[in-house]
Amino acid sequence: MLYSDKVMDHFNHPRNVGVIDDADGIGEVGNPVCGDIMKITLKIDDDKIEDIKFQTLGCGAAIATSSIVTEMARGMSLKDAVAITKKQVAEELDGLPPAKMHCSVLATDGLKVAVDDYLVKHGREPIAGEVKSADPNFDPHADEDDHDHDEA
């Protein structure tokens, strides 16, 4: 199993690590039993992601996918941000080993939960819908087909 140079770069030098103290949206996904937990905090202005930070407990791929998704989402509209797919995340990192594809689900799910958190707090309809990795019984290793919902 080999990581691309880009995965290693984001793992060794993760971008946007931390917590936004007065965050507008917060998303936390994953669970410790699986070994991966990710938290995203957002600063939102005019339905655009002005600032984004993450914290992740997890393997190299989990940290790298978290890092890249913060770069991808920064400046995006909420609508575009929740449309980021695990495939796009993996492609942005020049690929992920098959056994690590679920890590990109964690990253996109974290973002979705944070966006919906913001919307719901402001009395608006959530746009991302349910995410699997927020479920305490989420199995990140389950068959890949289970996650195809976010490629729609």
């Binding site: 993760p14 690590v17 917590v19 936390e28 410790p32 937990i37 990710m38 938290k39 914290q55 992740t56 407990l57 940290i63």
Partner: peptide, 8 residues
């Protein structure tokens, strides 16, 4: 790594 963890 612990400082990067949301749950430590």
């Amino acid at each position: 790594l612990r400082s990067m963890s949301p749950v430590y």
